[in-house]
Simulated assay, not measured.
Amino acid sequence: MALNGKTALVTGICGGMGSEIARYLALSGCTILGIDRYDAETVTDNIEKLTQICKKEVRYFECNLLKRESITDLCQKIDSAVPAGIDILVNNAGVVFLDLLENKTLEGFDEEITVNLTAPFHLSKHFFVSMKKKGWGRIVNISSAFGLVGSPKSTGYSAAKAGLIGLTRGIAVEAAQYGVTCNSICPCTVDTNRETCRSESYEKEYHNYSDC
């Protein structure tokens, strides 16, 4: 698939499916913009390796998808870096906290909804505007098989991923007339290195973090 001249933004780029998606898009001709919640120093090696594989520069932006102000700041930075607007948005980043329903915390549930559902809405809403103007765009939401069928200890994750499928359907119907498509992919367990640049301190704080 030739995507020469297109610019793709991939969230959760620093491990697992994010890195693989970015690599494939780059090899297909895309310029890659990647975001994750790590600071730039932590991900330097990862981005350099990805750049070598892609044989193109990969521009990295730090963003904590739990914070709306962080997403707003990210959008402003990307608008400045790519005045014409991105062409492809891949909402890949995610978080899951596995626990029995009776032990599930509201804080954990809120994080799963925020990262897995609210953040993709925020990014899709913003970048759809430039796609609409150009008459071409692709929004890809990485949901999960857990969004189609439930799984023990995954009430929040399943709810968020099911919501992401609903969000995809809504955007797809509204955006199609402007040459913009929106699709959702629902993988099961994927054999990738989930976190390739996690620091020791980050591991202690977010031991249940996942980007796929």
Rank of each mutant, 00 (worst) to 15 (best):
Lys134Pro: 11
Gly108Pro: 06
Lys153Gly: 06
Ser184Pro: 04
His126Ala: 07
Thr189Gly: 13
Leu98His: 08
Leu98Asp: 07
Thr181Ala: 12
Val115Leu: 01
Glu195Val: 13
Leu101Asp: 12
Thr105Ile: 07
Phe109Arg: 13
Leu164Arg: 01
Val90Ser: 10
Ser124Gly: 09
Glu20Phe: 11
Glu62Val: 10
Leu3Thr: 06
Thr196Asn: 11
Tyr206Arg: 09
Asn183Ala: 10
Ser201Arg: 08
Thr168Ile: 10
Asn141His: 04
Phe61Tyr: 05
Asn91Gly: 13
Ser201Cys: 03
Gln52Val: 11
Phe109Asn: 13
Thr11Ile: 05
Gly5Asp: 04
Cys188Ser: 15
Ala22Thr: 09
Glu195Thr: 14
Lys77Met: 11
Val140Thr: 09
Ile88His: 00
Ile113Phe: 03
Asp191Lys: 09
Ile113Val: 12
Gly108Met: 00
Ala175Ile: 06
Asp191Phe: 08
Ala2Phe: 15
Asn193His: 07
Pro187Arg: 00
Ser158Tyr: 00
Cys54Ile: 09
Gly135Cys: 06
Ser144Met: 00
Thr168Trp: 12
Arg169Ile: 13
Tyr38Val: 12
Arg68Leu: 15
Thr51Glu: 11
Ser80Leu: 08
Gly12Cys: 03
Glu41Trp: 14
Ile53Thr: 10
Leu27Trp: 11
Thr42Gln: 06
Leu148Met: 06
His126Val: 11
Glu41Ala: 14
Gly29Trp: 11
Phe97Tyr: 11
Leu101Ala: 14
Leu100Thr: 04
Gly150Asn: 02
Cys63His: 10
Tyr209Asp: 02
Gly135Arg: 00
Asp110Ser: 14
Gly156Ser: 08
Thr44Glu: 08
Tyr157Leu: 00
Tyr202His: 10
Ile21Glu: 01
Glu102Gly: 02
Thr155Leu: 05
Ala8Phe: 04
Gly135Lys: 04
Ala22Asn: 01
Ile71Pro: 08
Arg59Gln: 12
Lys56Glu: 01
Leu117Ala: 06
Lys49Met: 07
Ala175Lys: 05
Leu9Asn: 06
Arg169Gly: 07
Ser210His: 12
Ala175Ser: 13
Gly5Thr: 07
Pro83Lys: 03
Gly156Ala: 07
Pro83Gln: 04
Arg194Met: 14
Leu106Ala: 14
Thr189Leu: 14
Tyr157Ser: 05
Phe146Gly: 15
Ala159Gly: 06
Asp73Val: 14
Leu100Arg: 00
His122Asp: 13
Thr196Arg: 08
Lys125Arg: 14
Asn103Ile: 05
Glu107Ser: 07
Glu102Asp: 06
Val190His: 00
Thr105Trp: 04
Ser184Asp: 03
Gly179Cys: 03
Glu107Val: 11
Glu174Met: 04
Glu48Thr: 15
Pro187Leu: 00
Leu98Val: 03
Ala159Tyr: 02
Met17Phe: 10
Val10Phe: 08
Val10Asp: 05
Glu107Tyr: 05
Gly12Leu: 02
Gly147Ile: 00
Phe146Arg: 15
Leu164Ala: 01
Ala84Asn: 11
Thr155Trp: 02
Val180Cys: 03
His207Asn: 15
Lys132Asp: 02
Thr11Tyr: 03
Tyr209Glu: 10
Ile113Cys: 01
